[in-house]
Nucleic acid binder design. Structure first.
Lengths: 220, 220
DNA sequence: CTCCGGTCGACTGTCGACAATACCGCGGTG
DNA sequence: CACCGCGGTATTGTCGACAGTCGACCGGAG
């Protein structure tokens, strides 16, 4: 037995993850101030780890600090989404290419499991979460720590945008589901086959396709 | 008069900048442990802002946390440099293209000033600093906050690598100086002219050229 | 000599407290 | 009635302190 994973606790890290999830889930509306005492009280911890979590979230674009040091939930516009996708179009082909070159079997089981989960998913929320998770898996499979750091900056931004625009995009998500699953499956196969160039191109096309769909969607 | 910039002080931010500079300057060798009490004592502050600065630096890849929470200066290998340049090749063409599209005159004066400084620079260290600063300027000129967050991850990595490999690269830097200045000048003109596509291509070529030079350089 | 247990010191993670600052509403004043 | 000054309140930035944990070192047993 491999015993226990053994890991020193770090409240800040847990808080960061939990807060990020809460923000994406829409628990805090766009523009809401996340005051440290309020969060500390709700989480049952002191302000120190909360502060550290907020700093980490700021570097990931999940909160913004105003000129007085208060952290707020950023409110994303359509332009923000285009900006985010532009960055992802720059980063993710690289990640897919590296993943294809490394061909880590361990990462493949994660990706395959994600595909299965996505095929079985029902709610748009679950679908969006799995979609992001798949792309995270590709970045992780690239094996580049720095690429992963960059990815952190955009990882949950699309999810956050979806939450803030929720009224309109549920139907869109559902409609795109089969397309997305098919695109992910194709990416998975290509990465596993080790075809670097084709992996890059598929990743790019998957994202640009999405970008092309958006202007037609009823957004603002 | 635009009055004062007015900005609440934040020791953590200053510490982050100072520490980053010190690491790049080689004050802490690769693998060195940056203990919080030691830094706090040297800086004359308490541990709290030091911790916050370290967290920020970790998201920028300037320090790494080991399994026990200690922060260390990462030691970069040749593969790391290739990885970093790969990310920059993905990000910077996008930044240059956006900068060309925005055409912010304010950013142009910064870039032009950098060009002048670079033409006058003497030491390789100064040259490397200005080179990084130019690329930072392009990213800033892109106007994308998230792109800037991603850029933070790689901003000083090449400088750090140069420091850790210092013995060999001084001559290389000097030799590449004119090439670099010429490439930057060309990028500047193209961005200012608003030619998006050409800006992207120049940025990409500038970086891939550099990548091509490296394998021949006497590096480990 | 080698190996083991115990002790010491250092460091991290977390907490509560304090000063400084900015917002908000109220009362007084012209 | 409009405006200005003022105290109360909430929040941030910073500090010192404490518990838990880990490595280093030392002494003794086999």
């Amino acid at each position: 037995m491999p015993l226990t994973p053994l890991r020193r606790v770090n409240l800040a890290h847990d808080i960061s993850a939990q807060l990020s999830q809460a923000i994406v889930a829409g628990d805090f509306p766009a523009g809401a101030v996340l005051s440290e005492p309020m969060l500390a009280k709700r989480l049952g911890v002191s302000r120190a780890p909360v502060r550290e979590a907020l700093i980490e979230l700021e570097t990931r674009g999940m909160v913004e600090f105003d000129e007085r040091g208060r952290s707020r939930v950023p409110s994303l516009t359509h332009d923000d989404l285009v900006d985010i996708l532009g960055i992802r179009i720059a980063l993710e082909p690289r990640a897919a290419g590296l993943a294809a070159r490394r061909a880590d079997p361990l990462a493949f089981v994660d990706l395959e499991r994600n595909l299965d989960a996505m095929r079985a998913a029902q709610t748009p929320t679950e679908l969006a979460r799995l979609d992001t998770a798949f792309h995270s898996g590709v970045v992780r499979a690239s094996g580049s720590r720095r690429l992963h750091l960059c990815w952190n900056v955009v990882e949950h931004q699309v999810d956050l945008w979806l939450t803030q625009m929720q009224s309109r995009v549920d139907a869109l998500c559902h409609q795109l589901r089969d397309t997305t699953v098919a695109a992910h499956a194709a990416m998975f196969e290509t990465i596993r086959s080790g075809d670097t160039l084709r992996s890059e191109n598929l990743a790019r096309k998957h994202l640009t396709d999405w970008l092309d769909v958006l202007p037609g969607a009823p957004v603002v």
